[in-house]
Computed example of a mutant assay.
Amino acid sequence: MSIFFTLLGKIIPLYISIILGFLSTYILKCDKETVAKILLYLLSPLIIFNAALNVNLSASILFLPIFFFLFSSILSFILLAYFKRVYSDNTANLLAFSTSTGNTGNIGIPLAILFLEPRMVDVFIFTVLASLLYQNSVGYYITAKGNFSAKQSLLKMLKLPVLYAFILGIICNLLEIKLPEVFENYNEYLKGAYTVFGMMIVGMGLEHIRTNGSFDMKFISYAMFIKFILWPVVVLAFIFIDKTYIHFLNDGLYTVMFLFSIVPLAGNTVTVATLLNVKPQMMSVALFISTVISLFYIPLILYWYMN
């Protein structure tokens, strides 16, 4: 069990940042939108650019974002068809969208920095593009058939600076253009800043949670089951098949895939719920519960995976 406590010790500082984010909003009245803009328009594009620039491109690495984008898209349509039988309103759309993705950015990247070797961190960040594309294309289409057209969703995706940072990084990678060595340390500073701010904004988003009338056991149970059980089971099944029969990926990429599958619910699901006025407080409670569960769930399941 010493490995478990080692893993737990690594993840606790991340949750201290969540508490600091909560306190900065609750006590200091800091503006969450400003931090969100720093993450979206400055840190995220730089992080994605460096990952796309430095990753060793191969068919197996390119496969990861394609796999997770297709998996999230297919899963969301399957869940939507199922939840339409459970809910009579577009709560079904919100639940299908939110459980088909995860917080691979604000929580996933800090976890990757902690648990993966530097070379695989870039691969993980590279794979995060799958979540960004899903959330701003198929995800938005599913959650907002009556609020956004497919064209509006596409235009929103095209406004994402991380998309162009990714394309520029890939082009520079293919042309073998490298940044001067002086920027190597700066890249590590960027990752550190993203780790702190990314976790803080999770806490800042929890300040307005009100549990009164928002604790829907059925909604929360569905969300927790899909995110913490279905996701890793499907990914583990794929890993087993590939490792036994196909031999396309390697152990390092398996770890990236597994880490990708065990992050909690994505923070922007609350934004979508607020925008659509579909029980945003209930979505906030579900997000909070999944974040708390992940404090123990992630080191426990990583301990199991490593053994």
Rank of each mutant, 00 (worst) to 15 (best):
F126E: 06
D89V: 01
L111N: 04
S98T: 13
F115L: 15
N106V: 03
Y87M: 04
T91L: 10
S98N: 08
L111G: 03
R85A: 03
N93Y: 01
M120I: 12
F83N: 02
V86S: 09
F126P: 00
T104L: 12
G108A: 12
L79H: 01
N93R: 11
L95H: 06
I125Q: 08
S100L: 09
K84V: 08
D122M: 13
S100M: 07
I109P: 03
F115P: 06
F97P: 00
I107F: 07
S100Q: 10
K84P: 12
F115M: 15
T104R: 05
A96Q: 04
I107S: 02
T101W: 03
I109K: 02
T91R: 14
Y82Q: 04
N90M: 08
D122K: 10
F83A: 03
N103E: 09
R85P: 00
T127C: 04
S98D: 00
I107L: 14
V86C: 07
Y87K: 05
E117K: 14
A92C: 02
P110G: 12
T104A: 15
N93A: 06
F83E: 13
K84S: 09
P110E: 08
T99M: 01
F115W: 13
A92L: 04
K84E: 14
L95P: 02
V123N: 05
N106F: 14
V86K: 14
G108D: 01
N90P: 07
P118R: 02
T104C: 13
L94K: 01
T104W: 11
N93C: 11
I107H: 06
R85Q: 08
T101G: 07
G108T: 09
N90E: 12
L94I: 08
S88E: 08
A92H: 00
L111C: 07
L79V: 09
L116C: 04
D89R: 14
A112E: 04
L116R: 00
T104H: 10
T104S: 10
T104K: 12
V86N: 07
F124E: 04
L94N: 10
V121N: 07
G108L: 13
A112Q: 03
S88K: 13
I109Q: 02
F126R: 10
G108R: 03
S100N: 14
P118L: 05
G105M: 14
F97Q: 07
T91A: 01
T127E: 10
R119V: 06
R119S: 11
N93F: 03
V123L: 15
L80H: 00
D122N: 13
L80E: 09
A92I: 02
G105F: 13
R85T: 15
L80Y: 02
V123Y: 02
S100D: 15
G102T: 14
T127Y: 01
V123R: 08
F97N: 00
K84T: 11
F124D: 15
F97E: 00
S98E: 13
L111W: 15
L95A: 03
T127V: 04
L95K: 01
A81T: 06
L79P: 02
